[in-house]
């Protein structure tokens, strides 16, 4: 029970800090809209093409905007030695990781839920046909993104060129999760229900989430404390 309480304390702390400054979330929102606008200039797609590229487009936007939030997750604790305080606090590394991941998940999902309707409007796509399945895929894909982003934010917190290194390491690692999220999102926006041949992709996404969540929970303490 203690573990859950500690996790929620960390998550609440992070969310409160972010909502007071709104630094990362504003940047991520603005960035996602800018990419959506840029893509529409770059490709000028027809109706059928838009549906076909929707999965790829959306997840590139989510992954790029998401890393803006995720990269800062541990870096924001460095000024005023907050990171040392967090490490010294009587909570386990796993609770710290899970709390931060939960807060990041809420922030990234919020950015996505704003950019999804913007995408629908700008690209004139009816994306609500399979909305519940789409939300499920969104949640699973975002959790994978969040877990990898959060643990890598911890890995790179004290290194030179942090802003450059983190995305360089995160994106190749995310490829399986992004691929399945893109495929599923494309099919759902096209109006196909979940299931059939898409099921393997759903399973892959869940497996990715489970494996990397477990690995991160085990290894976070090693990363931060040594």
């Amino acid at each position: 029970m203690d573990f859950l309480r500690q996790t929620l304390v960390i998550a609440r702390k992070d969310l409160r800090a972010e909502l007071r400054t709104k630094e990362a979330i504003n940047a991520a929102l603005a960035f996602s809209i800018v990419i959506l606008v840029l893509f529409s200039f770059a490709f000028d797609p027809g109706e059928q093409e838009t549906v076909e590229m929707s999965g790829g487009l959306l997840w590139i936007v989510f992954a790029f905007a998401g890393t803006l939030v995720l990269n800062r997750s541990f870096a924001r604790e460095v000024p005023n030695d907050c990171l040392d305080a967090l490490v010294a606090a009587p909570i386990s590394g796993a609770a710290l990781f899970l709390g931060k991941a939960l807060a990041n998940f809420v922030l990234v999902i919020a950015v996505e839920l704003v950019s999804l309707p913007v995408f629908g409007i700008f690209y004139n796509v009816h994306w609500t046909g399979q909305i519940w399945s789409l939300l499920l895929v969104l949640a699973l894909g975002t959790w994978g993104l969040t877990v990898i982003g959060t643990i890598f934010s911890a890995l790179t917190v004290n290194i030179r060129l942090r802003e450059l290194m983190a995305p360089l390491l995160v994106y190749p690692m995310l490829i399986p999760a992004l691929m399945s999220a893109m495929k599923l999102t494309m099919d759902l926006i096209a109006g196909k229900p979940l299931g059939g041949e898409d099921e393997v992709w759903l399973r892959l996404l869940v497996a990715f989430d489970v494996i990397f969540t477990a690995l991160s929970l085990v290894l976070l303490e090693t990363v931060l404390v040594g």
Binding site: M173, I175, F212, L215, V223
Partner: peptide, 18 residues
């Protein structure tokens, strides 16, 4: 070392997915 473990775990998932 932590990154190496992550990379090694990711490799089979990448291979399966692709």
């Amino acid at each position: 070392a932590v990154f190496n473990i992550f990379a090694f775990v990711d490799v089979p998932i990448v291979i399966f997915s692709i």
